[in-house]
């Protein structure tokens, strides 16, 4: 029964997200609205973490399986891409690698800088 109840709660948030998606004319998918709603519900303690624990752990672990079918579907999209295949491949590879490198490096540099500054401050206080 526990799992069924958790699944029902999860479907409620997916459904609420779907409703907002229908009403608000923004290109934001139902899933993102649902994610924000569940997050707010957890933060405001309307919903306890334990009420969705097992179902969420389960879905996050099996998530990659859901991308298999859409990826297999690429076989059908081939026609629209083939004339510019080389350019599009180069564009996708460059942007993906570039985005990876820039976002990761920027975050790491800032976090390490703040950590160093904090440690220095703590040392200064200790010395005083």
């Amino acid at each position: 029964m526990k799992y069924l109840k958790q699944f029902c709660i999860l479907l409620f948030f997916s459904f609420a997200g779907e409703m907002i998606h229908h009403v608000v004319p923004l290109p934001v998918p139902a899933a993102i609205y649902g994610l924000l709603l569940l997050f707010i519900a957890l933060c405001t303690r309307i919903l306890h973490r334990d009420s969705v624990r097992e179902i969420c752990d389960f879905f996050i672990v099996i998530m990659p399986v859901m991308f298999v079918a859409p990826a297999v579907n690429l076989v059908d999209y081939w026609g629209g891409i083939t004339p510019n295949l080389g350019q599009i491949t180069l564009l996708i590879v460059t942007t993906t690698l570039g985005t990876f490198a820039v976002s990761g490096t920027v975050t790491q540099v800032i976090i390490r800088y703040r950590e160093r500054r904090k440690n220095r401050n703590e040392r200064d206080i200790a010395r005083k």
Binding site: L11, S14, G17, A31, L38, L42, C43, C56, I62, M66
Partner: peptide, 19 residues
């Protein structure tokens, strides 16, 4: 396609690690 049905609830689940 039945599996894709679960993609929205699964994305909603990402709120939990965030919390």
């Amino acid at each position: 396609g039945y599996l894709e049905y679960f993609l929205t609830p699964a994305t909603v689940c990402l709120a939990v690690p965030l919390y």
